[in-house]
Amino acid sequence: MSQNLSRQASAAALALALGAALVAAPAAAADAAKEKCYGVAMKGKNDCKAGAGTSCAGTSVRDHQGNAWSYVPAGTCEKTASPTSPTGMGQLKEFKEKKA
């Protein structure tokens, strides 16, 4: 579509497009409606439980500012292609752990 559409042409194009969209939209909506027999995936984030009790998550001191990082593949990002990056996309740097 040209940027130099006259207002009339734009009106005509819009009328055609809206008409087509109206015909197409209910079909698309019906497709999406078929996939809805799962429950509610989102959780409530406020509760009054205690988390991991006496695990060390709240007390451990880790520091990513160190300079002795090593590369560690970790999650699904390893599977993504990396055509441009020499180190490869999806490479994570390991946290350096300090003793607290």
């Binding site: 205690a50 988390g51 991991a52 009790g53 006496t54 695990s55 709240g58 007390t59």
Partner: peptide
């Protein structure tokens, strides 16, 4: 430390 963990983990 139980509270520290609860806050951080939650």
């Amino acid at each position: 430390a139980v509270y520290r963990n609860n806050v951080t983990v939650s």
